[in-house]
Design a protein around this nucleic acid. Structure first.
Lengths: 199, 199
DNA sequence: ATACAATGAATGAGTAGCCATTCACCACAT
DNA sequence: ATGTGGTGAATGGCTACTCATTCATTGTAT
């Protein structure tokens, strides 16, 4: 049969199974059954179980990076760029909850266990945020007292933690638009009342 | 021998081992060796491996909640309260990197796998943030357009993601004070240059 | 067109090793 | 002698990975 077809079928099946049971509780036979191939077939395309997980990251996050960068290329206002990133991230996480769970849980765990795996794609993804912030600082849109290395983590962490509820609870309390707006408001303007009485 | 003593010795050892190897790669014999007890002794104090993990959360986060609430009780300015929370959280995570890793990785993973475990302590901890925000809104210090349910996650997610670098890399790039100040600045005032030219 | 050979993708039962949990036994205090 | 806390070797279940085998497809000789 066609080879490329099976490779992505297995990736897709693995994303689903990892999200549902977690990496360690996922059985190779679960993935094989989900992909409708034999257990042994998986080893024609991947070296081992962990290799499957790495491939899931590389492919899924890689494709997200391409999409986000394409969207950002058409814009040069750092404020709108941050909004584009937030909206795209939240939309992607809400659409593909399996991927969201794998990123939120398995990625972090694995990054710790495997020293070899530099996790380049993930860093590349987060660094998009710091690039936007630096750009904004050059244009005097963002304050230079903000450290991009800290702000990028704060921004990603905020988005990540918020989207986590979509994978945990059935109830979709907040929409993507509403959430994007809130996060943007917080990060651009803060939460202080402009004329708050000081103490 | 004294019973209570061994219980906490095992908890402490388990936190260390879970942080280093992760829940699934941690061996009961590793924990036993670290706690300097026999494998079987662990089963005199805990029902099974997962029960050990739950106990780690309950005890360690529970103690953190008590400490934070105590600190907050002496203050009533919502701006300072947020600062106290951030500083206490970051300090605790930096001081006890083992606990930080267990919270960041294992807690999330386990919460998914065990439907029974409601994870009350963790919710209670995060809800401290939304209480502060609501208080600030009542006092007209924080804008009412901010939704506490979203803001609490954004704030916690930001702190959590930032403190993650302390557990991952040896290099302690940022100090607690510096990080607290940055996160507070972002959340209270945003990152926009006050007189940024609009487009 | 037909027969035969070669190829390599796919299969899935079997194996080897791992590890949570158990339990027969021990040491010591009363 | 009896009970209690403690021990760690043995057990038993589980699963990642292997590999002998199958078989569809392609090539080629007649």
């Amino acid at each position: 049969m066609k080879a490329a077809n099976k490779h992505s079928k297995i990736i897709h099946a693995a994303t689903k199974v990892f999200a549902k049971k977690g990496f360690f509780n996922a059985r190779i036979s679960d993935i094989a059954k989900e992909a409708k191939v034999a257990d042994g077939t998986i080893y024609l395309y991947f070296n081992n179980k962990f290799d499957i997980l790495i491939s899931v990251f590389e492919e899924e996050i890689g494709s997200l990076i391409v999409q986000v960068k394409k969207l950002l290329a058409a814009e040069d206002d750092p404020r709108i760029m941050l909004e584009i990133f937030a909206k795209k991230h939240l939309t992607a996480m809400k659409k593909n909850k399996n991927l969201a769970e794998v990123i939120q849980i398995e990625l972090r765990q694995s990054a710790k266990l495997i020293k070899d795996y530099r996790n380049n794609k993930f860093s590349e993804y987060i660094n998009i945020i710091s690039s936007i912030i630096k750009l904004g600082q050059e244009q005097s849109v963002y304050r230079t007292s903000i450290q991009p290395g800290i702000a990028k983590r704060a921004f990603f962490g905020a988005l990540d933690e918020i989207s986590r509820i979509w994978t945990v609870s059935m109830a979709t309390e907040y929409t993507v638009e509403e959430t994007t707006q809130q996060v943007l408001e917080i990060f651009l303007s803060g939460i202080l009342e402009p004329d708050a009485k000081s103490r």
